Simulated assay, not measured.
Amino acid sequence: MPLGIVVRKTPGVTRWQKWSWKVVAVLPGAGPADWRELRREGEAAEYHAATLTLTLYSSDTEAYLVALSAKTPGLYVVLGDQTDPEAQMPWRPELVTVSAYEGQGYAESGEGLVELVPMPLGLIGWVRDFVAEHHVEEVFIKRKRDRQRVDLVEDGKGDPRIRQISDVYRAPRGITRGDG
Rank of each mutant, 00 (worst) to 15 (best):
M1S: 14
P2A: 08
L3K: 08
G4I: 07
V7S: 06
R8C: 02
K9Y: 00
K9M: 05
T10V: 14
V13W: 14
T14W: 12
W16M: 12
S20G: 08
K22A: 12
V23N: 01
V24T: 14
V24D: 06
A25V: 02
A25K: 09
V26A: 00
L27I: 15
A30E: 10
G31P: 05
W35K: 00
E37H: 03
L38V: 10
L38E: 10
R39Y: 03
E41I: 08
E41T: 11
G42V: 12
E43F: 05
E43I: 07
A49L: 02
A49T: 02
A49E: 01
A50S: 10
T51K: 05
T51D: 05
L52T: 11
L52V: 04
L54S: 08
L54K: 14
L54W: 12
L56H: 01
Y57L: 07
S58L: 07
S59T: 15
D60K: 02
E62Q: 14
E62R: 11
A63I: 03
A63E: 11
Y64C: 07
L65F: 01
A67E: 08
S69L: 06
A70H: 08
K71R: 13
T72W: 05
T72R: 15
P73D: 09
P73V: 13
G74Q: 15
V77L: 13
V78D: 07
L79V: 03
L79F: 07
G80C: 11
D81G: 08
Q82S: 03
T83V: 05
E86L: 14
E86F: 12
A87L: 03
A87Q: 01
P93A: 01
V96A: 15
T97R: 01
V98N: 09
A100W: 07
A100Q: 15
Y101A: 10
E102C: 00
E102M: 01
Q104I: 02
Q104S: 14
G105Q: 13
Y106F: 15
Y106D: 06
Y106I: 04
A107P: 06
S109G: 04
S109Q: 06
G110R: 00
E111Y: 06
G112N: 03
G112D: 03
V114N: 03
L116F: 08
M119D: 05
M119Y: 04
L121Y: 03
G122Y: 00
G122M: 05
G122W: 00
L123V: 13
L123M: 09
L123H: 01
G125M: 09
W126R: 12
W126I: 00
D129T: 08
D129M: 08
D129C: 05
F130S: 09
F130R: 04
V131N: 03
V131H: 04
E133G: 02
H135V: 04
H135M: 06
V136F: 04
E137K: 09
E137W: 02
E138N: 02
E138R: 12
V139C: 00
F140M: 09
I141C: 04
K142G: 07
K142N: 08
K142V: 03
K144R: 15
D146E: 09
R147K: 09
Q148I: 13
D151T: 11
L152N: 11
G156M: 13
G156F: 08
K157W: 15
G158M: 09
G158C: 14
D159H: 09
P160I: 11
R163Q: 12
R163Y: 09
Q164D: 10
I165F: 12
I165Q: 14
Y169H: 14
A171V: 08
P172N: 01
R173A: 07
T176F: 13
T176S: 13
D179L: 14
D179Q: 13
G180A: 06
